[in-house]
Design a protein around this nucleic acid. Structure first.
Length: 325
DNA sequence: CGGTTTTGACCAGCGC
DNA sequence: GCGCTGGTCAAAACCG
């Protein structure tokens, strides 16, 4: 997931996580003092200007805080509205939604159609419900079908544009590749992985490049890990391997244990330009792809009821951190 | 030497 | 029944 693509739709929060710039190496106040040549009064003017600037910054931070609170409220309302709509729709159309077909392959193809249309922004939240419902009606199916009951998640990972051959999605887990296949609707091969961290872990992963934008890897996870995350087991390795998706600073991961969201608030605006330079492919991808990526990201964020809390805590923590200096 | 990757073969679902 | 397709298996190759 790349926020540079999201920026095109102005979904970024555009947060000023460094509101106080008074202690930078080159504060504008001192420059102004030097430029006016009032060296004798510079110290006094600087103190007055600093206090004035402090008040101004305080007002600005307060307004931003208020703005953020409003945004969080709107986001929560949107989430609730979206969720109620989904529940209402599912209650009205249980047979359509829960059991599109009784056949495995058919259900997946319909799933792909939803993905390509870009309308189903809730895709990936919990396709397992529909799958399990469909398989419940087919109890005579072979044991292999039982794996369908597992939850299915889909995540999108942008890779280096120059790297068009790798099918590696770094999500922190250990995967063993057991197959590769070229599918009909996509010239790029699809790789099949099994979780090798635990011998009994049933989770499988399919990785294939997007047809529309080959710099985007589509990873489909099936099942839930029956073991803790490797980063939690091997804490010494640390450093959030799971969230280091290539060089992308911000990412979403729809893991089986629930969505894990990282907002790298430490990145300055200058770094966002670096992100853009990393993925010049953004210019060539279609608006549909970008819109879908944004919708995927938005759904990943809004689906987590704790997201607003975490976001507010992170922002307030950053502000307080800078205020304490 | 053990784990991983590659790759052709095989199997099962589905449409005609 | 047959062909197409996706998913999986398993032997060989590869690698640290």
């Amino acid at each position: 997931m790349d926020y540079s693509s999201a920026a095109a739709y102005d979904t970024s929060l555009n947060l000023n996580t460094r509101p106080l710039r008074l202690f930078d190496d080159s504060p504008p106040i001192k420059k102004e003092v030097h430029s006016t040549g009032l060296i004798d009064f510079g110290r006094e003017l600087s103190a007055k200007d600093e206090s004035g600037a402090l008040v101004e910054e305080l007002h600005r931070v307060s307004s931003e805080n208020k703005k953020l609170t409003e945004m969080l409220t709107v986001m929560g309302e949107s989430y609730n509205a979206l969720r109620s709509q989904l529940l209402e729709y599912m209650s009205k159309n249980p047979e359509k939604e829960l059991s599109p077909t009784s056949k495995k392959r058919k259900s997946e193809s319909s799933n792909n159609n939803n993905t390509n249309s870009g309308n189903n922004i809730l895709n990936g939240i919990n396709n397992g419900n529909s799958e399990s419902s469909s398989s419940d009606g087919e109890s005579c199916k072979k044991p292999r079908e039982e794996t369908i009951k597992a939850k299915i998640y889909r995540s999108y990972v942008r890779t280096e544009p120059s790297d068009t051959t790798s099918l590696v999605v770094k999500d922190g887990y250990q995967w063993r590749k057991y197959g590769q296949k070229v599918t009909r609707d996509n010239p790029c091969p699809r790789a099949y992985f099994k979780c090798s961290f635990a011998p009994t872990c049933p989770v499988k992963k399919k990785v294939q490049r997007s047809v529309e934008d080959q710099s985007v890897l589509v990873a489909t996870y099936e099942g839930e890990h029956n073991h803790p995350h490797p980063s939690q087991v091997d804490a010494s390795s640390g450093s959030n391997r799971c969230m280091t998706l290539g060089s992308v600073p911000c990412s979403t991961s729809l893991g089986s244990s629930g969505p894990t969201i990282t907002l790298d608030l430490t990145k300055s605006k200058s770094n966002t330009t670096d992100t853009k330079s990393v993925s010049p492919k953004t210019k060539t991808e279609t608006p549909e792809v970008r819109k879908f990526l944004v919708e995927q990201m938005a759904s990943s964020l809004t689906k987590d009821p704790n997201f607003t809390k975490a976001l507010a805590a992170a922002i307030s923590g950053r502000i307080l951190q800078h205020n304490s200096y």
